[in-house]
Computed example of a mutant assay.
Amino acid sequence: MRVGVLGPLTVRAADGEPVNVTGAKARTLLVRLLVAPGRPVSEDRLVDALWGLRDAAPPVHPYGSLQGQVSRLRAALDRAEPGGAGRARLVHGEGGYRLRLEPGELDAERFTGLLARARSGAPTTERRVELLGAALELWSGEAYAGHTGDPAVRAAAGRLEEERLAAQEELLDLRVHLGEQHAVLGELDELVAAHPLRERLRAVQLRALYRAGRQADALAAYEELRGRLAGDLGLDPDPALTALRQAILRQAPDVERTFGPLTDSSPEPAPAA
């Protein structure tokens, strides 16, 4: 069985055939269990996720209604793995319900596994690029798309989206290092437009512009970020980014040597209240 949350919710049988989980409540139940596969979720939390304060017409007997949604979800899982193996994945025990998945069956788990391999075990830059690219190809939209009304799901989606953006930054940085600056400038422009205060992303953009022979555009991008940080947050650019600007002003032959490789990614600062 394969389950996808890096985009619209999907369930597929082992042969790749899609399995329809009928009913919005059954899909909500599945998503809530997928936030922490293998760990129990209490019936109280599941009832709140399915109805809670957001439902205009909550059931008179919510725990009985929860049992009905559990049965519906088990039937869908059985279509993915016939013979009772599918329904056996949804277990009730001490602490509530839990969904048992095998390693690699959830795309979010494969994504984080590929990132870990790229960051710690890849022997070459080219191999890191390959692993990061494979991780990003797993995405088909926003994480847990259409199901982030639940705070627990929203938090899990936020963590995955941050990892996705960090992986994009790392991949683009590595491709610039490999001399592919012209090829990545369009993608960099789109990401910077979506995340204008993210300094690491700007550093990759500045480096790519400079290596593409566009020194003036690199300096203009720095000034645009500096103005935004000052106006929106009352902050100055990170010293490392300022050092990169100075290297570009000096027309340093190798900005990587001057600035150093980017290894960390900080979340984009929240707008001031």
Rank of each mutant, 00 (worst) to 15 (best):
M1Y: 04
R2N: 14
L6Q: 09
P8G: 05
P8T: 02
L9K: 06
L9M: 06
T10A: 15
R12A: 15
P18K: 10
N20S: 12
A24Q: 10
K25H: 07
A26C: 11
R27F: 04
R32W: 02
R32V: 00
L33R: 03
L33E: 05
V35I: 13
P37M: 02
P37S: 05
G38L: 08
G38H: 09
P40R: 11
V41K: 02
V41D: 02
S42H: 10
R45L: 14
R45W: 01
L46N: 04
A49W: 09
L50F: 04
L53C: 03
A56S: 13
A56R: 15
P58C: 10
H61G: 04
P62L: 01
G64S: 14
G68Y: 07
V70Q: 02
R72F: 00
L73I: 03
A75V: 01
A76I: 10
L77Q: 07
D78S: 14
A80Y: 09
A80K: 12
E81Y: 10
E81H: 11
P82A: 10
G83P: 10
G84W: 03
A85W: 13
G86R: 09
A88W: 05
G93W: 08
G93T: 11
E94T: 13
G96R: 06
Y97R: 12
L99A: 07
L99E: 06
E105N: 09
L106S: 04
T112V: 14
A118I: 11
R119E: 14
A122P: 02
T125E: 13
E126Q: 12
V129R: 13
G133N: 09
G133F: 03
A134V: 03
L136K: 03
E137A: 12
W139H: 11
G141H: 13
G141D: 12
E142H: 09
A145E: 15
H147M: 02
H147Y: 15
T148Q: 08
D150H: 08
D150A: 07
V153C: 01
A157Y: 12
A157N: 12
A157M: 12
R159K: 11
E161D: 08
E163V: 01
E163F: 13
A167P: 05
Q168L: 12
D173A: 15
L174S: 05
L178H: 03
L178Q: 14
G179K: 14
Q181N: 06
G186L: 12
L188C: 00
A193L: 08
A194R: 15
A194E: 14
H195G: 00
P196N: 03
E199A: 08
R200M: 00
R207A: 11
A208K: 05
R211Q: 15
A212E: 04
D217K: 10
A218V: 00
Y222D: 01
E224A: 13
E224Y: 02
L233C: 09
L233G: 11
G234M: 02
L235V: 04
D236A: 14
A240R: 15
T242F: 10
R245Q: 11
R245D: 03
I248M: 00
I248G: 01
I248R: 01
Q251K: 09
R257V: 06
T258E: 14
P261Q: 11
L262P: 01
S265F: 12
S265R: 04
P269Y: 08
